[in-house]
Simulated scan of single mutants.
Amino acid sequence: MKVYIDVRLLDKKNNTGISRYIEFLLDFYISKYSDVDIALVTNDKFLKYRNCNIIYTKLKPYNILHFILFYFRFKRVDSEIFHSPFYSGFLFGTKKSKNIITVHDLMYRFVPNFFSPNNTINRIKIIYFDFIVSFSIKNADKVISVSNSTKQDLLKFLNIDSDVINEAPIKILRSNDEILKRNNLLGIKYFFYCGNNRKHKNLNFLINVFNKNTALPLLVLAGNGHKSCQNVLSVGRVTDEELRSLYENSLGFIFPSEYEGFGLPVLESLFLKTPVILSKIPAFLEFKKSKNTYFFSLNDDGELVRILEEVIQKGFIKDEYFLKEYSESNIICRYESLIEALNG
């Protein structure tokens, strides 16, 4: 095999950000080599992906014992590249393959009480993850950060430099307005959020703003774990086609997070000509060159309301230069250059 890709976090059912990134990598490597030259390492016995070779393992990426055993199971793999699309790779370096690891964020280190409100439990889990993450990154031949923000976090944490290659926005070719019909959203003005409701997403702040300011348009939430309430509508999990429809028909996408590694929904919104309202955090400020990004200070509800009113008035502004910088073709060129440098 020319390329091994660790797809143990591929989750088509929940369509996570890492799943989307893995699918982008699969398409990239298949177009560069061919599917018969690619092996996928998976925990899914039933996984099939074109004509790729499937290698099943019970070893989980974030179990320390499994992490150690994974090295001994795959250290003799004879391939040009072994790509880990997340921060669980190899315990030590391997001689026969060049190892690439992608780091999306170091959220567990920078978000307070990420694992548990209990400080002792949280600290133990940080040490647990540090073992896996630090060995994986230190023993990679190339480290990719998905943003300059993640690159800086890596320098602070491990003093390791990395190549910045942004994630590519997913290509959603069609929209499905059935989601609008089912939820009586046709012709309705609304703002939009898609994602989970973990604490660092800061959704309670956003929901409270719309609860208190009922003169604002509706806030629509897509994803698991949300509930409808005053001036807020939850539509649950959606397909890619429904997601496109929700983006395209919204006044703007709101991302109020306290921490992110990158922010793929920002690009998805902008490519679908939807303005984006963002909290002022390092990862999001990388998008400030766009004419369609608006920023508010964390938890400043007055500033957020003023920006929402401004977005309603302005709508989307044509901005081809910014979109070209984050285009799939540009990102593919960066991967080509990285692999050339790795093999050179």
Rank of each mutant, 00 (worst) to 15 (best):
M1T: 09
I5A: 09
D6Y: 03
V7M: 04
N14E: 14
G17A: 12
E23R: 06
L25N: 01
I30G: 02
Y33A: 03
D37E: 15
L40P: 10
D44K: 11
F46G: 13
L47S: 07
N51P: 05
I55H: 00
I55T: 02
Y56G: 05
Y56E: 09
L59G: 01
K60I: 03
Y62Q: 01
Y62P: 00
N63W: 00
F74T: 04
K75F: 14
V77Q: 05
E80S: 11
S84P: 00
P85W: 11
S88G: 02
F92T: 03
K95F: 07
I100Y: 05
T102S: 13
V103P: 01
H104K: 07
M107S: 13
Y108F: 13
P112T: 06
P112I: 08
F114H: 11
S116Q: 08
N118V: 14
V133M: 08
V133T: 15
S134W: 04
K138Y: 14
N139V: 00
K142P: 02
V143H: 03
N148V: 00
N148M: 09
T150L: 07
K156F: 04
D163Y: 05
V164M: 09
V164Q: 02
A168V: 12
L173T: 09
D177Q: 11
R182K: 15
R182D: 10
G195P: 06
R198P: 02
N202I: 10
N204T: 11
F205E: 13
I207V: 14
V209A: 11
L216P: 02
L218S: 08
A222Y: 06
G223T: 06
K227E: 14
K227I: 09
L233Q: 05
D240P: 14
E242N: 05
L246P: 03
E248F: 05
G252F: 05
F253P: 00
S257G: 05
E258Q: 12
G261Q: 04
P265A: 04
P282W: 11
F284K: 03
L285R: 10
S290A: 06
S290V: 05
T293E: 07
V305Q: 08
V305L: 09
E310Q: 13
E310N: 14
Q313K: 14
D319V: 10
E320T: 08
Y321N: 13
F322Q: 04
L323C: 05
L323E: 03
K324H: 12
Y326K: 01
S329M: 09
C333N: 14
E336V: 08
E336T: 04
L342P: 00
N343F: 12
G344V: 13
